[in-house]
């Protein structure tokens, strides 16, 4: 607290982030049905896809089952899928007029964006809870000590922030819900399949391997795989995973903050 004006500025900024994230949190608590129904998707992936693919030779390694391998991938997938359509709800808020109220306030646009990004973390965590419950039931070997859980929380939060901010950028560019739906669907599949979420990078052709290494979702999955599983290992190292996600999020926040005012023009 050497410099009080600096301290005041930071605390003001945090208050303005909270202004936005708190309203999202209240709404989610009031009506969690949307997030809960979305949790069916990861359940289907684990139960149907996982159980079948576990029998495919070359996917299962000797030390761990394919289901163990898949669970963190599906967790990351649920984070991606719920965050990537975040932009729709923001366009919806713009159509209603709710967004205008935030945009005419003196809050820095970056605070408004971060408030939304943070809020999307709540959603990610709600989904993660469902995936964890299911994983326990399926007998997946989860790491349940506090450090691992905290680590998973951190990765889900930053992953949600990253993909929701990315989604916000798209919303600012396309501006309408119809166009967004198309683009959202177009983007999700490549991001998902060009990653290590459902198969190891090692079995990919070279070009896809390159694409995967440039895909932030790969680092999300890699981090989750290390933290979520009892004998989890990382390919890139937790520090690298987190650094990549943090850098990508920062870039997206900067771009989103610049584009955000376009929505209410």
């Amino acid at each position: 607290m050497a410099n009080p004006t600096w301290f005041t500025r930071v605390s003001n900024f945090l208050t303005q982030i909270q202004a936005v994230s708190d309203t999202e949190f209240r709404k989610l608590r009031r009506d969690p049905s949307e997030v809960l129904t979305r949790a069916f998707q990861p359940a289907i992936w684990l139960l149907l896809f996982g159980e079948v693919m576990a029998n495919v030779r070359g996917l299962a390694t000797s030390s761990s089952s394919y289901l163990d391998f898949l669970a963190p991938g599906i967790l990351a997938q649920s984070v991606l899928f719920s965050a990537i359509f975040f932009g729709i709800s923001i366009i919806w808020e713009r159509d209603l007029g709710v967004l205008h109220r935030q945009m005419v306030s003196p809050a820095p646009r970056s605070a408004l964006v971060l408030g939304k990004a943070l809020a999307s973390g709540f959603r990610g965590l709600t989904q993660a809870t469902m995936v964890y419950l299911l994983a326990l039931i399926l007998g997946i070997h989860l790491a349940l000590e506090p450090f691992s859980i905290l680590g998973v929380v951190a990765f889900i939060w930053i992953g949600s922030a990253l993909f929701s901010t990315f989604s916000l950028i798209i919303a600012c560019l396309v501006k309408t819900r119809d166009r967004f739906m198309g683009i959202g669907q177009l983007l999700t599949m490549p991001i998902f399949f060009a990653s290590n979420a459902i198969y190891p990078i090692e079995i990919m052709p070279t070009w896809l391997r390159a694409l995967s290494s440039a895909n932030p979702l790969t680092y999300e999955v890699d981090g989750l795989r290390a933290l979520m599983l009892a004998d989890g290992i990382t390919k890139y190292g937790l520090a690298t995973d987190f650094a990549v996600l943090f850098a990508a999020t920062s870039i997206c926040v900067v771009i989103a903050a610049r584009l955000y005012p376009r929505l209410t023009e």
Binding site: T15, Q18, L96, V98
Partner: peptide, 20 residues
């Protein structure tokens, strides 16, 4: 357009403004 959030209470809408 109507700019208050229908999924929040009147108090919560004002709380958001107060913080912003």
């Amino acid at each position: 357009l109507l700019s208050s959030d229908g999924n929040l209470t009147g108090y919560e809408n004002l709380l958001m403004s107060a913080r912003l």
